[in-house]
Design a binder for these strands. Structure first.
Lengths: 265, 265
DNA sequence: TAGTGGTCTAGACCACATG
DNA sequence: ATGTGGTCTAGACCACTAA
């Protein structure tokens, strides 16, 4: 019977439905400041990570899950939607919710605006090449939504990972955010410093491309002139919608790449 | 007074609060199959596009907006959250909701899994270099979650934009999805063909990098050997969580780059 | 202190997929 | 016909921000 179906609708999922015999072991702490939906999402994610919810396995439906945990349906729904947005679950109306296949590697958080390299292998090193304040040119002014010629801070840093040069990072920021010194920048990432002074970064637009290394870039990165480099320019906005940072970075592609999860909503 | 504040908390938004004098002109069609929250989101987005809600302007609070439109607060909230997820709005508890600064360019839809190049300038052309069926190697098998040696379809295409070669695209797909022919692939994108036979793509993981062109790639792309190329490998999953496509593409960086919006949730 | 968004509840009706 | 997720309502309480 099943085989016949596969022949007639060959694009159907051919893996057997894996259904848990027991309800999900979710425990809630209603006195915690962590939202209930988030507690649920974290625990389901942990189950997926530990393989207790293998790829392709089906979750119970929303209403049943809500009953089992003692939550309302909208709250349980919010938890599940959170994991759908992260690319861990897939749902289809009339069918149900499944763990997505192919979770070898946790997709990089779309939501994280952390300094790109703080998650780089082991101790990332930083050498600050320049910290200067001066009038910005028209390009930077346009990116930061400032009047041309406004004073901005200009950073130029060289990043290392495991002793190897990894990236040249240039950034421009409004002068009034915080006092940036080479010492601080060599022990903490730029984003970490900004968060530490109360800047809440919310939205960023990134443009990722490639180009050949200049001679100067090659010297800094141990590459020859003309070697391919991965480039990223980015403007970041805070929770007031104000531009707080513009960056122009180049990476050695053998040591760094961008991993992105896309989700259809 | 305002100036004093700016001196004491200099990282605050220095733009004057722009508040609309009139309620948002939202009209609803309750008989439409389009969800109400989506109708609202579309109309607010249109207002932003037309400049009637300029960058930095503040929206009324959720409850007021819900009253004005005759919707419940959760529904209005869903509409606003939709635009926050798209990077158009920014909200802060205790403060309100604003249009984000810097909307020169509509960020590319994170949600869209459309064929990368169908949005490329004007008439994109395609030359199909190969359409073959055969056993896959271990790399492809792992990417598509198939047993090694399973038969798969292998595509190799050259993309043009305005007559210029733009990208070499290789893709591998399970054989049971649809019948792919060179003719079909030259008039429609791969994703469009897949959607046309009922495949609903939901999640994709992309890895973006760079490397030097090989001699063969250079010949196809009008580049010299060693020229920098932008690379993207991707695996796409459907609404059953099944891998439906794996791609490995190289792009000429002068003609193509990736634009991405990141949103902190 | 007042105003905002963040979270949560307990229902309801509907569209869609499946058998 | 049944079961699923998608949408919607009308409230409620809380945490955070700003004045």
């Amino acid at each position: 019977m099943t085989l016949l179906l596969l022949v007639r609708w060959p694009h159907r999922d051919r893996t057997a439905r894996i259904t848990l015999t027991r309800p999900l072991p979710i425990t809630l702490d209603r006195s915690s400041p962590i939202p209930l939906y988030f507690q649920v999402a974290q625990q389901i994610e942990a189950l997926i990570d530990r393989g207790e919810l293998p790829p392709g396995s089906r979750l119970d439906n929303e209403i049943l899950l809500a009953d089992q945990t003692g939550l309302s349906r909208p709250t349980m729904r919010q938890a599940i939607q959170h994991l759908v947005d992260k690319g861990l679950l897939v749902r289809k109306r009339g069918v149900g919710t499944q763990v997505v296949h192919g979770v070898v590697k946790r997709p990089v958080e779309l939501s994280s605006l952390y300094d790109d390299l703080s998650r780089s292998n082991q101790r990332p090193g930083t050498k600050v090449l320049a910290v200067e304040t001066g009038p910005c040119d028209d390009t930077i002014a346009a990116a930061l939504r400032l009047a041309p010629g406004t004073e901005v801070v200009h950073l130029r840093r060289l990043r290392f990972a495991q002793g190897e040069p990894l990236a040249i990072m240039q950034n421009w920021l409004p002068t009034d955010l915080t006092e940036l010194t080479a010492e601080r920048l060599e022990e903490r990432g730029l984003y970490e410093l900004l968060r530490g002074v109360g800047v809440h970064m919310r939205v960023a637009n990134q443009l990722i491309g490639a180009r050949a290394a200049t001679l100067a870039e090659g010297r800094l990165l141990n590459e020859r002139r003309g070697a391919p480099l991965l480039t990223m320019t980015r403007t970041t906005y805070d929770d007031n919608g104000r531009a707080v940072e513009h960056g122009s970075h180049v990476y050695r592609p053998a040591l760094y790449s961008f991993e992105i999860a896309l989700v259809e909503r």
